[in-house]
């Protein structure tokens, strides 16, 4: 019967797309995100080595989850103030980015090489969600994908205020660098 055949064919196709979708995913749980504040009196650097990231190569969807308490600093007080006064990590434990590689078609994930990409999406930090549009690099290398980026954010965009007493020590403009090595996601 004609109808049955098409029906089976159709669901077989959906199944194929679903399975193929799962194989197109790459992830890491040890991604690196560093941020730097350069101010006249003090430079502050926070390092996080436990960033979770997932990339769907088919759709170009790219998502990050960053645990704020995992940022490490040179000085204990910096870490304390970062968590207690600035990002309020007890109230807002994670920062999340959900976006998509705008020019995903330009990346050939089957071929080794370095591709310049443009990532658009929403960054949620300190309970404020902002649209961000940042440049990045995708490097396909031996079955792995390296995704990296560097961009600036303004603390004031995320309702993080700097008291006047430390204006010379904390910059409103923060440089963020992202480095991830993604492995195929099984399942």
């Amino acid at each position: 019967m004609m109808f049955r055949k098409k029906f089976v064919l159709f669901f077989g196709f959906v199944l194929f797309v679903t399975v193929a979708g799962a194989q197109d995913r790459y992830f890491t749980k040890t991604g690196k995100i560093n941020f730097t504040s350069k101010a006249p009196m003090e430079d502050i650097e926070g390092k996080n080595k436990t960033v979770t990231a997932v990339l769907d190569t088919k759709s170009g969807a790219l998502q990050f989850s960053v645990q704020m308490k995992s940022f490490e600093f040179e000085k204990a007080l910096m870490q304390q103030h970062f968590n207690e006064n600035y990002v309020e990590s007890d109230k807002y434990p994670d920062a999340v980015f959900k976006g998509v590689i705008a020019n995903n078609a330009a990346v050939n994930y089957a071929k080794e090489g370095t591709y310049t990409v443009n990532v658009k999406g929403k960054l949620t930090l300190h309970n404020v969600t902002k649209d961000v549009d940042v440049p990045g690099t995708i490097k396909v290398n031996g079955g792995k994908i390296e995704a990296s980026s560097a961009f600036n954010v303004l603390l004031s965009d995320f309702r993080i205020s700097i008291p006047s007493a430390v204006k010379e020590k904390v910059s409103n403009s923060i440089r963020i660098t992202v480095e991830t090595k993604l492995d195929p996601l099984k399942g």
Partner: peptide, 8 residues
């Protein structure tokens, strides 16, 4: 859905 779903 693929673009908006929670990959994480």
């Amino acid at each position: 859905a693929g673009q908006n779903e929670d990959l994480l």
